[in-house]
Design a protein around this nucleic acid. Sequence first.
DNA 1: ATGCTCGTACGATACTCATCGTAGTACGGC
DNA 2: GCCGTACTACGATGAGTATCGTACGAGCAT
Lengths: 119, 119
Amino acid sequence: MSTAASPRALEHPTRDQIGLEGVLHALSDAVRLRIVRDLAREDDALSCSYFDLPVTKSTTTHHFRVLRESGVIRQMYQGTAKLNALRKDDLDALFPGLLDTVLTAAEAQAGRRDGAEGV
Amino acid sequence: MSTAASPRALEHPTRDQIGLEGVLHALSDAVRLRIVRDLAREDDALSCSYFDLPVTKSTTTHHFRVLRESGVIRQMYQGTAKLNALRKDDLDALFPGLLDTVLTAAEAQAGRRDGAEGV
DNA sequence: ATGCTCGTACGATACTCATCGTAGTACGGC
DNA sequence: GCCGTACTACGATGAGTATCGTACGAGCAT
């Protein structure tokens, strides 16, 4: 084995290292907001490849990293796939209602946009 | 001379031009979050000079502009002063509960920090 | 082992942004 | 008219970031 210690450890902030500004910044990007919405809708850990994002794989990796380092999601390897899950418990403990409110707001905005253009 | 019509008009987005990503981005900066907290606490329009921010006036102007252009605050001139007010009605209509939840989260985080370091 | 798929690392690039200093404009008071 | 106060505009700068392409590493299936 070797490969120097645990080859695929992922850095996550502890609960008390999560900052509001960082979370808001992580959520202020359209691509990342969409990832979080999907994650919340499925309410389960999803692999990166589940998402059909309008960016390349490199950029996808980048966005997942921002989400992880800000404390919004938790990532763990499972074979070749990497599973992503919302840290809903931590976020709810730190900022009660924030995640739900943002998600509701995102849905509302998506609805407005559909309604405005569509049909 | 003249000063051409209304000399000091300020551009504001209309309610339906306000986007969630922009609002979250505006709130994801510590200086701006503090401005918004003060504005919410006073529940009144405040002049720029009311705030004692750890940045220069140029930078302050910049932050107020970001807040205005994202739709978080409304600004209007009153003599030489410029008054700033939260667009709470618009934000509540678009994203119900968002502003309150973020403000509560900000207070909670500030409380945690005070409690952690200080006496 | 060979190859396939999933995801990472690295380098490059172009853009945004937070910050500042200086110079300027608008308004109100003297 | 003149000056001070309040804020803005402009230019510069350094840091961050969103994006990509290419090359690599880890695990699974055959």
